[in-house]
Write a protein that binds this DNA or RNA. Structure first.
Lengths: 111, 111
DNA sequence: CGACACGCTACAATATCCGTAGCAACCCGG
DNA sequence: CCGGGTTGCTACGGATATTGTAGCGTGTCG
């Protein structure tokens, strides 16, 4: 027993612990944004998610998934796979404009 | 001479290279989101920024700043410090709702 | 000149992440 | 019941990314 995930709740880059810092820290861990992005429109099994994320390491994917579940953004539905919770969906809405932005951004990426 | 920053343009987690992946990858590097956040309303000198970021390592801060400058989100105005470009400001707008979201999120963080 | 700020870098230690392999549990057809 | 497939998840050694401390060269001001 005793999952060895040692309380990741300590925000890495902030002494204040303001929620926004907590959130910013969570979101800027490797694959976190990507996972939310891939889950934005469909449920995926852990392996399908792995495939969607260019075969990222299952180690780190599981770690992120656990964090996202603890944060209440992602849930695991048995026999269905991972998906966003209503809260997670809200968070994801925030990033949808990012897609359009990214497209426009590329335009000026002529250099 | 010869800055040893070895062309970080390779997107880490994507074989497709879609702009959104490029952006997602950039944003999920340590301190990137934080830097954008701290710069959202004011110009900061490199040292002020460092202070604002809980004394993050100047090494990585410079690296992120360079990336953000190459991406066209951040600029260095001599004798004024770092600030967002119009493009960077647009990107930051995307994250403003994040603040309110983070506050609401904390509420359910009773565990 | 001396004291201070600036942007930025070197370098060793550490934390994080990657890639591969593989576990136990489950389902399903034979 | 057994073999072959899936699932979620973990171990572990090596590769990267990040940290912390110190300090460079430049500019500015008294």
């Amino acid at each position: 027993m005793a999952r060895q995930v040692p309380k990741r709740r300590n925000v890495r880059g902030s002494r204040t612990g303001r929620p926004i810092m907590l959130l910013l820290d969570l979101l800027s861990r490797r694959w976190t944004l990507r996972i939310l992005w891939e889950l934005r429109s469909e449920r995926l099994t852990s392996r399908a998610l792995r495939t969607a994320c260019d075969d990222a390491s299952p180690t780190i994917l599981q770690a992120r998934l656990t964090e996202l579940r603890e944060a209440g953004f992602v849930e695991l539905v048995p026999a269905e796979g991972y998906g966003l919770t209503p809260l997670g969906r809200e968070l994801c809405e925030t990033f949808l404009p990012l897609h359009r932005f990214a497209e426009r951004w590329r335009k000026r990426e002529g250099d």
